[in-house]
Amino acid sequence: MVSIDVWNASVDFPIFDAKSRSLKKLALGKVGGRIGAEGRVPIIEALHDITLSLRHGDRVGLVGHNGAGKSTLLRLLANIYEPTRGSSRIQGKVAPVFDLGVGMDPEISGYENIMIRGLFLGMGRKDMEKRVDDIAEFTELGDYLSMPLRTYSTGMRVRLALGVVTSIDPEILLLDEGIGAVDAAFLEKARDRLNDLVKRSGILVFASHSDDFLVELCSSAIWMDEGRLKMHGSLREVVKAYKGRDPYEHLSPDTLERIGQAPVMSGNGGE
């Protein structure tokens, strides 16, 4: 069963400046009374007291100002950071798409990058070989896949990254805002595929500043503010509270129908 449970989790970053990161300082600090070096390290509380529970089928948007803790929360959910206080339990195969530049080698071809990404996400080499054609078709990159990655545009990299994560049947998909670089046609395609994926097997958490993306991909939302979970509810309510306007008000009836929202103001945004 796919699930994400986080109880009272906090993430504190110790900020070591050049001085406190050295052994010398630690040794000197021991002389003349116990001043723990840890105690003098300034701490940034990136997440504070987060309690969260997500289940199968949840498509959650993360909104909030820069530095509100969206990316850190995503990394907590990806098991990259273990909470410094509190606890978390993430069950299911996690596939994160954060920084598009990381884990991708600009000098090697798209095909090879697909392979490496897949291996990093816990797939076997044979599994990935089977999926390469599927990914090639989905990304529409064609012959470009045999070119070195440095020749790709940002949008093409996003396509590649999305192609890989959606092809490996992840159970928990975590997307950071970077994917905004794709064009509308591809977004539509990706949306169908992501929705399909979430319906079949999982949870989507997506951090974005773009209403359009959020509306397309998410049903509920979390508003992060200064490392705290300020609001968790339906997408419509949360975005309305965060931005002060209804995210659906400018959308055409076609779009609304497609994403399953009533055009009237009494929306029932999931949850």
Binding site: R75, N79, I80, V94, P96, F98, V102, G103, F120
Partner: peptide
């Protein structure tokens, strides 16, 4: 650093 912060391996 980059890989550690971006991919859970």
């Amino acid at each position: 650093e980059g890989l550690i912060k971006h991919l859970p391996a």
